[in-house]
Amino acid sequence: MSVREATVDGLKQILRQVAGEVDGVDLDGDILDRTFEELGYDSLALLETGARLERALGIKLDDSTLNEVQTPRQLLAAVNEKRATHPDAA
């Protein structure tokens, strides 16, 4: 992901890279408020997703963030909040 802001499209791209797609789940649909569990991504897939977001955006998420977020909307909010407060991300 080359953009410096985390978008839902960027997140979908990362999710596909780190854990493929699950049968019966359409990532192209509106996934913002569905839980990662519903979407078929387990805790390790989320950990890997977090690492990719950190690398792409030059941020460091709090250790607790990935345990707390349930949905793509919550993850994007947490990431973009970090980005906003990150000195290099302006």
Partner: peptide, 8 residues
């Protein structure tokens, strides 16, 4: 193999 298992 299902696509979701390929990366892991």
């Amino acid at each position: 193999v299902p696509s979701r298992l390929i990366p892991q």
